[in-house]
Design a protein around this nucleic acid. Structure first.
Lengths: 257, 257
DNA sequence: AACGCCATTCGACAATGTCGAACGTCGGAA
DNA sequence: TTCCGACGTTCGACATTGTCGAATGGCGTT
């Protein structure tokens, strides 16, 4: 592809490798994984080290991501419009529903969590902003997937986390059709036993789905005795999604211009 | 500097600019800021866009950081040894002291927050992992600064946030000397009115100070009636710092090998 | 002591990134 | 409307710059 810079692509690949890999990597491992000559990889790593994107362990010589990356990551959050617009509505949703709220968007066929509000009453929960969730086994993911024009976003292999996870493309397609019809999505024990979630799509200007907002918690709180999501909670989630969408400039039938 | 890659340095500068700048920037603004030719900047941006590090607004053409940066940022947190080791000790410290706990390290003459535990009883606090704090007006910063061999880490200009902030190099130097003598640091209304904090350095193998852990909260809870940090809280903080340091392989006089 | 693996340095080649000039487009001003 | 300026983008040629093979020195293991 002309007009792009080869060395920057390679540097990005190095950073991805360091982020995805389990901790530190040696120069040899990196150069082997990317099929680059050792001196080439060394030059890239030295540059990344100079700018603070990677750090090098003095004794082992191994490389890992540097502190500057954290700044860039949170810098993205500051700029991210989906997140900044949704913060104002996530807190009320958490308060009204009594459950943890998460906002996500699609990244590489998975759900990237860009905002997270803890369940109001509970303590000692782990923040998972920045983590990736499977797109086919979460309410957030299904809400995002159902409205994507590019079906390519659907993963080829569907990992089965529990017996309730959609395991085939047929099941998933049917589930997405139901989501489109209902306007919201749910997931009951498809990712973790005993947990369920409800989500709705967030639309930006033009009606394009750019994210999803949802709640998740213990199945007995999210669902009624028939394992069906409680209508009151569904209404809460849909209202929040509508509010965020309106902030982002989306219009609804009969709504303001 | 030989052995480094020019284009990667430039790409890093672009990313920094996008992270530091207020939101979206145009191609012309970026190329002007970095004193690069427009086509050069364009090539860099296209490459960064291809790998997901920046996104481009379709209508305005302006650029902003992309979602992939968030992944790399949190990837740093996963790998960061200081953070992973300190998590186990931060929760108990928060529980015992009843205050919010933060762990920080030095980045570019400021304090980078790498971990944050909310105050146990309270709700609706904002997470500030990834944010930068002034190094001369926080207990974390003074704990870090006091033990740095390279005095260059001390900022040239000392912003005065309140009337209690150390405004001159003399004041700061004296404060750091006191920290070294005591082995812990404190800050009372030096950054925000009504707030105070206590911190202690975290040492890694070899005794090198690699971070600091501390608590912060309302001044009347952190301090006694004479505006002096409560000894019990100081002990809690120092114990936590020692525990983390031991996990990182530091040894103390008379300690284990 | 000898081997293998490692990170790093050197030097030469050409592949690659850079930049000036030019194009198409948009928005505002005359 | 027409003009003007600024913008993002494309093209092509030059030489800067990144790349890679070979070689070095250091470490831990055999």
């Amino acid at each position: 592809m002309p007009g792009t810079v080869q060395s920057i692509e390679r540097a990005a690949a190095v950073l991805r490798l360091l982020a995805g890999g389990s901790g530190r990597l040696s120069l040899a491992e990196i150069s082997r994984s990317l099929d680059l000559a050792k001196p080439t990889t060394h030059g890239i790593l030295q540059t990344l080290r100079k700018v603070g994107f990677v750090e090098q362990d003095r004794v082992s010589g191994h490389y890992q991501l540097g502190a500057a990356m954290l700044r860039l990551g949170t810098g993205f959050l500051d700029v991210n419009e989906l997140r900044s617009r949704s913060i104002n509505w996530a807190d009320p949703l958490a308060a009204r529903s009594g459950e943890a709220v998460r906002i996500g968007t699609v990244l590489d066929g998975q759900v990237l969590v860009v905002h997270h509000v803890f369940r109001p009453d509970d303590t000692f929960q782990t923040l998972d902003v920045g983590s990736l969730l499977p797109i086919h086994a979460t309410a957030l993911g299904k809400a995002l997937l159902a409205y994507r024009a590019d079906g390519a976003a659907a993963p080829a292999a569907l990992d089965r986390f529990t017996s309730r996870t959609a395991g085939t493309q047929r099941e998933l397609t049917e589930a997405l059709r139901a989501v489109r019809e209902a306007g919201w999505s749910a997931e009951v024990e498809e990712l973790h036993r005993g947990e369920a979630s409800i989500a709705a799509p967030i639309r930006a200007y033009g009606g394009l789905v750019v994210g999803a907002i949802g709640i998740s918690g213990h199945v007995e709180r999210i669902c009624d005795s028939h394992y069906r999501p409680r209508p009151a909670l569904v209404a809460n989630v849909r209202d929040a999604a509508r509010a965020v969408s309106r902030d982002l400039g989306a219009t609804f039938r009969g709504g303001a211009p």
